[in-house]
């Protein structure tokens, strides 16, 4: 009886000890706070912010999307180049952005918004001459953070999707929402791990990611696009190219015999582009096995929705694994 009581008490103490440890750990994570001013590296630049930005100007969908998933949607006062994106599952919050532009607004239209932070999707595209440059924003005291996967534009051959995790982590630090950013990263990592576990033993499927062209064919080669394909259990047919996209010879693509087509319907409908590929490469395994997938817009630029695109691609490339 005595032994039973002692062992029970010891067991409770033991559990309590670990519970306290776990709680302490949890508390330390939830209380991980940013001490301002904070300096962050972005695309080879250093930016310093003195407080969580309250008025944010974003470009494309992924900047807003990331902020919204971190509970920061209300800080976005303008979004450029939304390109008919409706926000997807965040449509309600997306519609609340007070200033939305189909393309890049003129410099004065952007300036009048008086943002105190810019979150840019494309470091190399988001600052065309008719708008404000990064230097212009910086001179006005506005920090510009550029998403890592698109640093260097077409030459970003070393870009990988997990750079987006660094962006989420950095945004968490800048906006002092590190717990939320950590949770978002964990969720994405877990979803990717599920894909990799499912497709791990299967041979990589060679695929061509195309966005149109009837000769040459416009193709995304490597960099973040090739990596997205790898994460889905595929392999780009141009792994050694020193550019992330380009126009490629039809005869080379025919000779490489891709096993799948991933189609981004920018220049025409998915059906028309698929029909062209099937007609042009009738003996390619991708045509013979009818393996063509419409890549949703969310696959680029890299962001939260890209994970869903990777899941879709993986299921198409390895249907037996799911």
């Amino acid at each position: 009886m005595f032994d039973y009581r002692v062992s029970s008490i010891l067991f409770v103490i033991f559990l309590s000890f670990f519970a306290i440890l776990a709680l302490a750990q949890d508390t330390s994570e939830s209380e991980q706070r940013t001490s301002y001013p904070v300096t962050i590296e972005t695309c080879g630049r250093s930016i310093t912010v003195d407080a969580p930005p309250q008025r944010v100007y974003t470009t494309y969908w992924n900047g807003f999307d990331t902020l919204a998933r971190l509970g920061l949607a209300e800080s976005v006062i303008g979004n450029a180049f939304h390109n008919d994106y409706d926000g997807g599952d965040l449509a309600e919050q997306y519609a609340q952005i007070p200033n939305q532009y189909q393309r890049y607004p003129a410099a004065e239209a952007a300036l009048v918004l008086q943002p105190n932070f810019v979150l840019a999707s494309y470091d190399s595209f988001d600052f065309p001459e008719e708008t404000l440059s990064i230097e212009d924003w910086t001179e006005d005291g506005v920090a510009v953070y550029s998403m890592s996967t698109e640093c260097g534009g077409g030459d970003a051959t070393q870009a990988r999707f997990d750079m987006f995790f660094d962006d989420v982590r950095n945004i968490g630090i800048i906006f002092d929402v590190q717990t939320e950013s950590g949770a978002l990263i964990t969720e994405m990592r877990e979803r990717l791990a599920v894909i990799q576990t499912a497709t791990g033993d299967a041979d990589a499927v060679s695929a061509v990611i195309t966005y149109g062209g009837e000769g040459p064919l416009n193709v995304f080669t490597n960099g973040v696009y090739g990596n997205i394909l790898e994460l889905a259990g595929g392999q780009t047919i141009f792994p050694d190219e020193e550019q992330t996209f380009g126009g490629y010879s039809l005869e080379v693509i025919a000779a490489l015999e891709p096993e799948a087509y991933l189609i981004i319907p920018w220049s025409d409908t998915f059906e028309n582009l698929r029909s062209f590929l099937y007609t042009t490469f009738p003996s390619a395994p991708a045509t013979v096995n009818d393996r063509a997938l419409l890549l949703p817009d969310g696959v680029t630029p890299a962001g939260y929705r890209t994970v869903a695109a990777i899941e879709q691609v993986a299921q198409m490339l390895h249907p037996e694994a799911f």
Binding site: Y122, G215, P216, F245, S249, W266, S267
Partner: peptide, 25 residues
């Protein structure tokens, strides 16, 4: 200009066409 998007999009096809291209023969 209206069609300009990062990554090429329709602009790549347009530029190939405007510069002259026999690849679709």
């Amino acid at each position: 200009l209206r069609a300009a998007q990062p990554g090429g999009s329709a602009v790549a096809s347009v530029l190939y066409w405007l510069a002259g291209n026999l690849g679709g023969a």
